[in-house]
Design a binder for these strands. Sequence first.
DNA 1: AAGTGAGGGTTGGATTTTCCAACTCTTCGA
DNA 2: TCGAAGAGTTGGAAAATCCAACCCTCACTT
Lengths: 156, 156
Amino acid sequence: MAATKDPRPCSIADTLALVGEKYSLLVLREVCLGNSRFDQLVRNIGAPRDILATRLRRLVDAGILTKRAYSERPQRFEYRPTQAGLELEPVLLTLMAWGDRHVRNDDDRPMVVEHGCGNELLPVVTCSACGDTVRHEDLTAHPQAPGWTVTGPTVA
Amino acid sequence: MAATKDPRPCSIADTLALVGEKYSLLVLREVCLGNSRFDQLVRNIGAPRDILATRLRRLVDAGILTKRAYSERPQRFEYRPTQAGLELEPVLLTLMAWGDRHVRNDDDRPMVVEHGCGNELLPVVTCSACGDTVRHEDLTAHPQAPGWTVTGPTVA
DNA sequence: AAGTGAGGGTTGGATTTTCCAACTCTTCGA
DNA sequence: TCGAAGAGTTGGAAAATCCAACCCTCACTT
């Protein structure tokens, strides 16, 4: 999935090169839920075992997951998110919220996440400087590197 | 990419079924930046033209993009995000922030996004109820449907 | 002692996608 | 008349995915 000729330097593309392959983010979903063993992942994700093995290697190499033996004799392993992996959780939450809104007709959500404050988590992306919810119209893109051509009076 | 046997009902998986294929989110990046024409997309994304055509059809079908003629005679088209498409922008922003932090060593970010408040946008996912930044430890998953087995004392 | 089952993969081959370059078609401009 | 731009489509080679079957180690049962 390496962007062999991607003409744009871009952190979105770079990130997707690590976690954008099929099943990778679902692996992350599972390990964030605490499901850490190979067979659990196979069952819960529905991925072919060989593909899953490949993905796990990739994610471990990328520093997103760690692989640890939870038992020698018989050797058994578990996969857990690293700090970097946990920092991708907001991506999952945002994807989930979008899916709840747009692919399901809300209200038959397969999962609800509860926040420590006692309420159901409705994740919102905000500007850390002012705290406001991010709206498309409030954004302006500033390319820092060559390769970016932003057409309109537009925005990221 | 349809999850043919995904044993888990999951909005993350559902959303990825729509936008998780290679290049789809980069298409969204481009249209959010205002680059709306086929050839621009080919150049900026670096995708094969045939694949891009396929992705565009998918995204239009999914209601994430619209296709409009901006010129008859010669027929020319533009792709723009729908409201639903724009609501995926937070996913892009979060992916970008993660990449800035973890794949680049910060400080050579290819793009900076400015927020309407005048500051550089550092996107943070917060709980809409209490306003706090979402941390993994504060989350508890509540499966609503069968098929979910959350192992540990864990979390989404 | 033999058989069974769990866990964590690997292997071979069929199927599906991607990739790439070339080609098409239409219309505008020189 | 001769490009050139825009928006794709097409055919065939290369790569990735899918699937079922297999392997290995150890533990537990009978």
